[in-house]
Design a protein around this nucleic acid. Sequence first.
RNA 1: CCGGGAAAAGCUCAGCGCGGUUUGAGCACUCGAUCGAUAAUCGAGAGGCCGCUGGUUCGACCCCAGCUUCCCGGACCA
Length: 939
Amino acid sequence: MPAHDLELKKTVNLPRTDFPMKANLPQTEPKLLSRWNEEKLYEQIRRSCAGRPRYVLHDGPPYANGRIHLGTAFNKILKDFIVKSKTMAGFDSPYVPGWDCHGLPIEIKVDAELGGKKAEMSPVQVRLACRKYAETFVHLQSEDFQRLGVFGQWDDPYLTMSGAYQAQIAEAFVEFLDKGYVYKGLKPVHWCMRCRTALAEAEVEYEPHASPSVWVRFPLVSDAARIDGALAGRRVHALIWTTTPWTIPANMAIAFHPRYEYVAADVSGDVYVVAKDLLKETAEKCGWAEAKALAQFSGGKLEGALFRHPFLERDSGGILADHVTLEQGTGAVHTAPGHGQEDYSVGQQYGIPTYCPVDADGTFFHAEGAAGRLPEDLIGKSVWDANPVVTGLLRERGALLAEKRIDHSYPHCWRCRRPTIFRATEQWFIGMERHNLRQRALEEIKRIKWIPAWGEERLSNMIATRPDWCISRQRTWGVPITVFYCQGCGEPLTDRKVLDGVVKQIAAHTADVWYEKTAAELVGAGAACARCGGTSFRKETDILDVWFDSGASHLAVLNQRYGLDWPSDLYLEAGDQYRGWFHSSLLVGVGLRRASPYRECATHGWVLNREGQAMSKSLGNTIEPEEITQKYGAEVLRLWAASMEFSEDVRISETILARLTEAYRKLRNTFRYALGNLPDFDPAVDQIPAGEQLEFDQWVLVRTEQLIERCRKQYEEFEFHKVYQALYNFATTDLSAIYFDVIKDRLYTAAPRSRARRSAQTSLYRLTHALVRLMAPLAPFTTEEAWGHLRKLPGDPASVHLTLFPEPGFPAGGLAGRQRERLASWEKLMPVREQVLKALEVARQEKFIGAPLEARVRLSAGRELYPLLEEYLEELPALFIVSQVALDDHATAALAVHVERAEGSKCERCWKYSTSIGFDPDFPAVCQPCSGALREMLA
RNA sequence: CCGGGAAAAGCUCAGCGCGGUUUGAGCACUCGAUCGAUAAUCGAGAGGCCGCUGGUUCGACCCCAGCUUCCCGGACCA
């Protein structure tokens, strides 16, 4: 390169900036995070929002067990989008994160860690171990979430195991009790008779087991003709099959499927009602030589029929249930509500008592709740020993038609490995019909805004059909059900004053106080049993369902303590929470506050892998958030979350992340280009009023205004993927491909302080100022970095996260209406530009030109376009990035583009071809405009 | 099996509350340009039985029904 070229190059205003091209996110993000921490940025944001209208997103507590996964990361990032965008839209939007700390999964993990030691430990010691376990993961998860750039009150989150929260849970229970929602009832649960304990689903293991299966007949005692005329006067029986003969004493009903076809089969005089499709198999099992069908009818006919228990003095009614199947048995299902979950729920529907004559040891006793006294042979016998006794009784009465051992998988206790049983135990319930709770909840659902709309139907269906809420668990790690029982008569003590006193003690000492103190200490002086006047009590040992804990979060958190209001504006969780948190929170809200704790409820989808399948640890197809932050940076993970339509299931894969990394680079380079061309631009003095800018620079500002409008609206509607696409398309198309490319010549070659260059810089500055803020909720790290490199206007805070979104009128404010109208011309010129670029491409393919600046473009156009092109002829070379543009006088109908070699020679400074090279003797190698610029620079 | 949801270029998304020309964008891809945004930038091109099958209609990606696959919750297995 000749010496004078070097000299000329120095006079070109090339970009320079400290904003690096390479982000190095995994290294730079933690630095920014610690800076934000030191500066207490979240608190600054809170202070800056004082007095604004409030917008409360109430955080659903993740379970404090294990590290975060992509699902929880996705959830938190989405919440952060909402909180940050609401804040920047002018709301006071605090974010108080929380954790769900009680419950079985933790207790089981701790159990496993403690092993045999647990037996020697007191409940308080076990609870302490659970608390420590939960604390560990609260801290780990907190760090993980903060690493993602989620802003919030991390130094004071809500924990369901804190004393205050536990007291709130207990208080909520007491209120439910006081208002009359709570009752004590029986419900079958997995029960280990050796350990004398209820077992959760997670605590039973299925192992092979041999059971004595039996076919038993129940004679019909109601009018057979009502089932079918052909049965009048016949000896009709229902025929049931069961693998647990010992539950026959607890039989209370016989269930039929409402839509299946049944036949009444004559077997040597006795008539048996059996599902049509199971007749053949049943005949084989029972050894019937001949079974003649007398009648056929649908199961619905059997509802209300009465059958006599084979050896007890009571009748079992015919009922209808969808759970009856045709896979095994007879299609007539022995129903013992005290010993089976489905039997129980169908029993509830028919108002059949949950009768359970088996005690905690698994032995029979004379229980209340059903007619017919058990034979003394059974009393005191364990259920396993009772099997032969029952079959013996059945055989004696001629009720046993067949018996056959069956090997099947059967639930066993995970501790002692013994087979378990289903046994009705006393449980606490919240009655869905009490005070019309169900109906009121359904009404309330209609008032909530659901995003997406189908959420309403989904939760309504669940609430409409759910059974009463069983809120008790036979566990240690949780909030105790704070009820006492009279030692004398067993009556529960539910005196509100006493229970309120307990709540206070929990608030002061955590719920451990329930286990540390005696009943007498907790009750205090002066309490007496309402029934017998007794003054000595024992404590309830059950704890509350953890869904009750988290369902009460709105009571514990949306209050003064956290500076929040009840109800919240929004809940946002994955779709599994219709069964969980959305559900329990609504019931607690409607029950205790007569309204939903959320005005809006948004759902996001599940995170799936590349093939669209669920990720699970057992399949080993998971990607950890930490992996992504370490390899790509949290910003890329956030862009991933932003680019997805979150209401549907979303996918993640290496390919997707690679794309996003590239998109990230493009966005970053957009900022870099703008910042690189602004080092000598002081917005306080160098800005040109919009009305005095070049039209093309006005045009890009108006485009920016449209972008602002769109983005603000889409943030408001939580359509983050549309914000992302809008921002990204704007950066790639409007800016990189068009505006930046076109103004490059002016920025580089015009005199630094010329109006032409300052006009472009003004647009660059203003659009960057807007763009950085628009993108801040999605990309908090990079926008903060860019903001730091952008010169501030008076009033601009140090952090972009303390700013508001740009107003739609911000970029081109001061532009007169007439000027705005003129910009429509530029929209019309854009298609012309596209055609010119195509023509240049053809010329390039033909090797007629290389760089576009070697070209002169000759246009001819029809009547419509010609005047416009003529008007803007001066601007066209810049817009097309060619050296010259000529316009043919005889206008053709359609636009035609001809590419010619540019006239003159190449200016060594601006590289455009010109006939004015050497015009200025002082600068012989440059064109006339360049010499002018050079003179200006030297002056 | 029941309740809810989803299916469109390789990827991420528009579009279709009001059915009507060959369905769009960006990225990725291919080819080319540039070497003054340079581990950047610009241009052009090629990619789609709009999951399948029926129906309504003069006409369907769009409306209706059924099916297939996937996801969430529940039931069953127990």
